[in-house]
Amino acid sequence: MIKFTLRRLLLGLIVLFGVVLITFILTRVVPSDPAAKWAGLRATPEQIELARIQLGLDKPIYVQFIRYMTDLLNGNLGHSFRTRQPILSDLQSRLPATLELVIISSLFAILVGIPLGVVSASNKGKLPDHFSRLFSVGVVSLPTFWIGLILQLVFYRILGILPIGGRVSLETTLFMDIPTITGFITLDALFAGNFTVFFDAVWHLILPGFTIGMYPIGLVARMTRSALLEILNEDYITAARSYGLPERTVLWSYALKNSVGPTSTVVALSIGYTLVNTFLVEAIFAWPGIGSYIATAVTGLDYPAIMGVTIVSTVAYVILNLVADIVVALDPRVRV
């Protein structure tokens, strides 16, 4: 088991190196001149040259690559063209907001998706199955950004019950003291015992969380269903039924435990989707997270920022997959 983990880690490192290589190649592919961009619109040729030296673009390509890697290992992701701040600190300040969304939507995915898949598989061919399947396939066909807009239209404009965006309402920002311990407004408010802020924050989480969570719900439900269908055909399920065990136990205990493998892979995959969907959705809901950061970076062609977020997200994604692989390997049958 330990050998397996070490081997996976080593593989992960090799892969990360490849990722860094690719991102580096990307940064050098841009059609426009990064030095010019850095120097600004009204820069003189001398200023652009200065910028070029500053950015180290005058050195040969392999030197640049080495510098790029050492920078990364030191946590230096460069500076954003737009904010002129170190990208790492930009990201750090925005991380909790995005994490809140990722956690909420993943919870949605698991708490709604898995039971949906189980109900669907155990009622195969009957009405609940057809409904769930249509629902799942429908939900993964919805463009996330579009559903966000529609939800805003319905719940904010027409019904007026949910806020259009932001993490807390305007009044709260102006009049209340938002505690900042973890950066998670919900948790911080709870710790401080400030329930008005807490409820306000939760209220604001509903629409964006649901928007992002829809796709993973469909994904998880479908995967759970197909994994479970395979399992329910196995002999040991028939045997368990022949011993007279109640269907409830057979489904939720016996069958489900066998699906941990494929399920955790799907959960990892859906968290990955969530990560990317936040890019599309945060802008719509004026959510000050990494997503809106990269959305603005993309529109403004702020290359270092795009690069920084790409690397950080990819590293997170690789770690996530590593964890999922380890969970799968915990299956007693898997010989590692």
């Binding site: 593989l11 090799i14 892969v15 990360l16 490849g18 990722v19 290589l21 690719i22 991102t23 990307l26 940064t27 592919v29 841009v30 059609p31 426009s32 990955g272 989707y273 990560l275 990317v276 890019f279 990269i294 993309v298 062609l301 290359y303 795009i306 690069m307 790409t310 997200s313 990819t314 994604y317 690789v318 997959n321």
Partner: peptide, 24 residues
């Protein structure tokens, strides 16, 4: 497979966004 793995390590869609952004 190593090369494939590297490409697959990127969260889906993000790689496309990055490439599209950098190519113009």
């Amino acid at each position: 497979m190593r090369i494939t793995d590297v490409f697959l390590s990127f969260p889906p869609l993000l790689l496309a966004i990055a490439i599209a952004a950098f190519l113009g």
